[in-house]
Simulated scan of single mutants.
Amino acid sequence: MSRIAIPALSDATGNTADVYARVRKIAGGDVPNLFAALGHLAPATLSAALDAEGALASSSLSKQDLETIKLLVSELTGCDYCVAAHAMLGKMAGLSPVALKQIRNGQPTGDSKRDALIRFVRTLQTTRGTIDEDELAAIRAADYSDTQLADVSLAIAMTIFTNTFNRINDTDVDFPAVE
């Protein structure tokens, strides 16, 4: 059970009701538990997060790239909520169940560009300081532009934000279980 009690969504008023309406529009009528908690506690924060996610949706990265990043970061962070969410969203973006498992387990997917992205994101998440010049050269050699690297940075940052909040809240997972 989530640590933060959330009143019934139908009882929301003001900015919270407004941001829930925005989430419903984006999510097809549902308000996932993560967004319910954030909207209740900090509607402006949730609104800013939705704005950032909107920027990512129209960024230079494909949906598969975004879900690869989000799933990998969530796995490395240990956020069961986001792992479940991004496994489902990754499947909806066209990643196979096998690829999703390989991403989570740090195994090659057989797609050299995706594998370069996984290596780069893993390096960013598991090392400290400025990354090695060879790592930057490798991701560029995989045909990722500097603009895409800026978008990778935002995807990582947004995922760490939601991972952190879910780890604090122990948010009830309302996505299909991950094997």
Score class of each variant (00 low, 15 high):
75 E>R: 09
104 R>W: 07
31 V>T: 06
43 P>M: 05
104 R>D: 07
50 L>Y: 07
30 D>Y: 08
58 S>W: 00
65 D>G: 00
114 R>F: 04
64 Q>W: 11
105 N>C: 11
33 N>S: 12
126 T>A: 12
133 E>M: 03
152 V>N: 02
103 I>H: 00
121 V>R: 00
38 L>T: 10
131 I>D: 09
47 S>G: 14
95 L>P: 00
122 R>F: 07
143 D>C: 00
70 K>N: 06
30 D>M: 12
33 N>G: 02
114 R>W: 00
98 V>H: 10
79 C>L: 01
123 T>Y: 11
39 G>T: 09
150 A>F: 14
156 I>R: 08
38 L>A: 03
61 L>H: 11
32 P>W: 05
144 Y>I: 05
74 S>C: 01
39 G>I: 11
51 D>F: 09
101 K>N: 08
50 L>N: 11
57 A>W: 02
143 D>W: 01
139 I>A: 04
151 D>H: 13
32 P>N: 12
88 M>H: 08
54 G>W: 03
61 L>A: 10
100 L>K: 11
101 K>V: 06
106 G>V: 05
97 P>V: 12
107 Q>N: 15
106 G>D: 04
38 L>E: 04
90 G>C: 06
115 D>N: 08
114 R>H: 00
44 A>R: 13
102 Q>T: 01
57 A>H: 09
147 T>Y: 05
150 A>H: 12
146 D>P: 09
51 D>H: 14
93 A>V: 08
43 P>Q: 06
35 F>N: 12
33 N>T: 11
155 A>Y: 01
88 M>R: 14
80 D>A: 14
149 L>C: 10
70 K>P: 01
43 P>N: 11
109 T>V: 11
57 A>Q: 15
134 D>V: 14
40 H>G: 09
135 E>K: 13
66 L>V: 07
39 G>E: 10
70 K>I: 00
41 L>C: 03
127 T>R: 12
37 A>W: 00
51 D>A: 13
121 V>M: 02
47 S>P: 01
98 V>F: 08
117 L>F: 12
32 P>Q: 06
72 L>V: 05
73 V>A: 01
94 G>F: 14
27 A>V: 06
153 S>E: 02
157 A>E: 05
156 I>E: 10
85 A>N: 03
84 A>R: 03
103 I>K: 02
141 A>I: 06
156 I>Y: 06
156 I>W: 10
118 I>G: 03
107 Q>K: 15
44 A>I: 07
147 T>Q: 15
78 G>C: 11
90 G>Y: 03
74 S>I: 02
111 D>C: 06
75 E>P: 01
60 S>Q: 10
147 T>P: 00
116 A>W: 06
101 K>G: 08
102 Q>A: 13
146 D>I: 13
132 D>G: 10
121 V>G: 00
135 E>I: 09
103 I>W: 01
109 T>M: 13
149 L>K: 08
